[in-house]
Amino acid sequence: MLYALIPLEVILILYALGRSGLTLILGVSFTLVVLYLWSSRHRFGDGLMPLERREFPWLYDGIAKLAERAGIGMPKVYLLDDYIPNAYSFGNTIVLSLGLFEVLDRDEILAVAAHELGHIKNGDTILFPLITYGRYLFAVTTLTLLLLGSNIVKFLALLLYIGYEVERSSFMKGREFKADETALRLLRVPLSLRKALEELKYYEDLRETVKVSGVPSIEPSIERERKFTFIPETHPTYEERIWRITYEMNQLANRNLQ
């Protein structure tokens, strides 16, 4: 569905604006391709330090084994100087923040790395940027159609934009679940992924809670910036992921028993 919406948008803009529409699409697409190529060749973010095997042999070897099990090459691994536990991936690269090492044990950190390897194996690290750039394309063309199009074109443009946002959210959530499923199959201790998510959820909850009865007087002032948005979430909640992981683990256990 997501892939069908982009050609529909292109058809709509060609119908509404003719040659100018074609120029607009080619111009925006060219800019986005250049942006994509540039960003895929550059490191994301400051404070990234390459993982050295001599410093972290257990982590390096652990990720190498997971990559081998996944049937992909050893990814580039960077450590991020950030005390907030976080991980992300792009291209063939995994980034783990130093904050992860303060709150998770070794198996749990490898589980987080396995989830990111799942994204690489499933092609998400290529798909996600394309979908995001598709969103920019939609934003520019929708705005143009809202300014220049007839009433019916305006209506259709808005409908397509909302459709793209809803589909994008559902697609990306689905890919997060898929990365978890891949990680469960790669891990020696699948339970560690659930434990890692439970600890990360606890961390987030603690940061967001003004006063928690179990830990009096904790009023963390380090909450993440809250974004005001009407756009649907692209990440499933920790609860959703933990529930799905538990279900998947039970399925795996049942299959092993048969």
Partner: peptide, 12 residues
């Protein structure tokens, strides 16, 4: 007490 609590408090 959990590791997360200590990490959050030390950063605070």
């Amino acid at each position: 007490i959990r590791r997360s609590t200590v990490s959050i408090l030390m950063n605070r």
